[in-house]
Design a protein around this nucleic acid. Structure first.
Lengths: 172, 172
DNA sequence: TAGACGTAGA
DNA sequence: TCTACGTCTA
């Protein structure tokens, strides 16, 4: 067999193509697409010590209002402030730290970010690799719950996208 | 390739031998040893609608005081009552429900239970299959935290255990 | 909907 | 120690 380096990296992961599907977050870790088991934003430090985002997993879970404006344009909500349990938990303003700070830096440095989208078809969960994007804008908006949420705007940064297949991938 | 039936079952899982090691709970699910991703006690209903325990994962996490009395005798704490976060969470008496009820029924019905033990060697997590046991006793004891905890006593129910190898598996 | 012996990183 | 867009069954 052949050994594959699955350590954290920016950009394309060798062997993984757009629209490749995976059955669980654990698979994403094994393949090297997204090392964080739960965290929606995976990060790494570059040679200068800047925290950058390597990849994001976009779902509609827990009030994370992500949406595709088009096939090449994703609006992705930052992390934090969304309580997991509705047991009187309180929504809070997100902070520019952790994954949010990493996405912010990726924007400043114009570094590519891998995008993985979760889709659920007839109860079956799939994580679909959606290619490389650039963060070109970050807005602070007030959610329906009243808390401040970051919205990162990402644009596709690849030319060779198989258009036909893109239509088969479900939007969020 | 050959397809393997990994649905819930009692007793031995074809292809898995005592002291086989797995790197994560996800692997246990895939192999069919233990279907519950997090729950320490996996269960199934028999043809009469009785909830039985198929397998248990023994760790020392979260105040679960499991211990091997000998290579063939395991004392396993029931589930519930141990708060995950120490954020003012309260220890509570365990109830004879869910996994606890399943282990109780397995005792009554004299059904075999698979045992998997978690071990950590130099920071590396491993889950080790430890063979088939019978529950022969259940005691209610008061923990150091003051709450009532079930202690299920399990005895090995196999003869062909490779003794040499047993010594290599770390105790809890 | 919530509970259950998860997992990796900062 | 804590957070983080987990996953399954009852």
């Amino acid at each position: 067999g052949r050994w594959v380096n699955t350590s954290r990296r920016l950009g394309k992961v060798p062997g993984v193509e757009i629209n490749d599907e995976f059955k669980s977050r654990a698979e994403l870790v094994v393949v090297g697409l997204h090392h964080a088991f739960i965290n929606g934003i995976d990060t790494m430090y570059d040679e200068d010590g800047n925290l950058l985002a390597t990849s994001i997993v976009a779902t509609g879970d827990r009030d994370y209002g992500n949406y595709m404006e088009s096939e090449d344009y994703l609006v992705y909500s930052g992390q934090g402030g969304n309580p997991k349990v509705s047991n009187g938990a309180v929504f809070e303003d997100q902070k520019l730290q952790g994954g949010n700070y990493a996405l912010w830096n990726s924007m400043e440095e114009k570094k590519q970010v891998r995008v993985i989208r979760k889709k659920v078809v007839l109860g079956e969960v799939r994580y679909v690799y959606d290619g490389l994007y650039l963060v070109h804008k970050c807005e602070e908006v007030k959610s329906v719950h009243g808390n401040i949420v970051f919205q990162f705007h990402l644009m596709r940064d690849e030319d060779d996208v198989p258009r036909k297949l893109m239509h088969e991938a479900a939007f969020l």
